[in-house]
Structure formats: structure tokens, C-alpha cells
Design a protein around this nucleic acid. Sequence first.
DNA 1: CAGCATCCCTTAAGATACTG
DNA 2: CAGTATCTTAAGGGATGCTG
Lengths: 119, 119
Amino acid sequence: MEKIKQLIDEKEDCSKILFAIQDTLDLISGKWKIKVVSVLLYGRKNFTDLQRQIDGLGAKMLSKELQDLEINGLITRTVNATKPITVSYELTAYGHTLEPVIKALADWGTTHRHEITGR
Amino acid sequence: MEKIKQLIDEKEDCSKILFAIQDTLDLISGKWKIKVVSVLLYGRKNFTDLQRQIDGLGAKMLSKELQDLEINGLITRTVNATKPITVSYELTAYGHTLEPVIKALADWGTTHRHEITGR
DNA sequence: CAGCATCCCTTAAGATACTG
DNA sequence: CAGTATCTTAAGGGATGCTG
């Protein structure tokens, strides 16, 4: 009886973390979103800058990912009145809250790179 | 000239973090891996337990994800000599190093859930 | 420059059925 | 129980070309 309750607790506790993770992943899913946000942590960038800094990222995908991020309130889009128009993107305060997540991902990769490649 | 150098530095600095992130994502990509690892943070589990705790996860996918995780050294697989055989999985020390990453993802989801659903 | 439209294709992943 | 084998599909994503 006590054991059953324990199992239920464990299951519920586990569910909570799984749902939370899912919520996070929903916003940063897609092949490029995390990287776009990562680059934007360094400050405002325009479309071309972003595409140049992220290797393999095509214009169509970048465009799509930026739209998703804007819809979710993570970035702002600004059209600049330059001769050929440029558009710059910037993280919102909300977007900046992703920094710990990105840092965790980057730190892990940095720390364990040798274990990955050494396999 | 100074500005160019600055741009190069920025680009290289940025590349580093992007590569690190990619390395991490390579190991935990796939729809279920992070969740499987998350559940295993709570301790050793067998196949059925895992499947029951992760909603929507089918046997085929679970099997595949577990294999990937084992190949990458994140978990260990143990066959138990029970009447119908059971197999239990456990995080390795290496696998446990993912805890900060998972915590970051879960924390963010927990903190910002209302902003997501409130949209 | 910053995109959109279109076409195309791979592949992740689900459903189902079967086995030791 | 813990998978494997096979089939099938949706969709994520890439390449190209065009436009204001």
C-alpha cells in the first residue's frame, strides 16, 4: 500500500519534469532555433549575419525559424531603412531567459567533446 | 582593419559555442532521448517502466533510443534472470553528467509555462 | 537584402504483427 | 517481457528561382 503510493508519487514527480521539458522543447524545436538564439545572445544581428554565422543554414529555413521565434515572443524583428532594406533581429527579455539553457548545452558539449569524438 | 579583426573574433567565438551545442545535440537528438535520460535520473528502470512513464512512447522507438544511448555510453543495459526475462537500464556516470542540461530544460519549462500556454 | 513560392526528397517515427 | 521486422506516412528540411 505504501509502496503503491510511492510509485504514484514517483510517476507524478517524473511527469512534471517531462512536461516541463516538453514545453521547453516545443519552443526551441527545429534544427536551427537554438543556434539562432545562441548567436543572438551576442547581440542584434541582421538576416545575412545570422545566415553567415550558422553553417549550413539556408535562407528559407532561417526565415521560418525567425518567424517561429518571433511568434513565440523570443525575438523582435526590425526593418531598417537602409538603401537595400536590411532586417535586424534581437532577443527579447524573454528570449534572454534561454541563456541558462543554451549555456548548459554548450558547457556540456565543451566538457565532453573528447568523449564523443574519441569514441 | 581593427573592425575586421573584431568581426573575425566574434565569428570564431560564436562558432565555438555553436559547435559545442551541436555536439551535445548529436547525443540527445531524437524525440525521446532526453526524456528517457530524465526518467533514468530517478534511478534504474526496466523497459516496461520506461515505456509506461513516458507518454506516447512505443516499444520500437524506446528500443531504438535505448540502443543509441547505450552506444554513446550514457546508459548501461542489464538482462535480469527473472522468469520472463526483464531488462533494466541505468545511467552511467557519464550519463549523469547530463543532469545540468536536463535541469536547465526543465527549469525553463517550469518557469515559463504560463507564458507559453498564455499565448 | 530579405524573403516567398515551388518542387523535391530523405528520414524520423508510428502502426502492426511476430518471436524467444 | 523485451524486443525485432516490415510497412507506411507525414513532414522537416534542402535547392532553386523570383521579387520588392
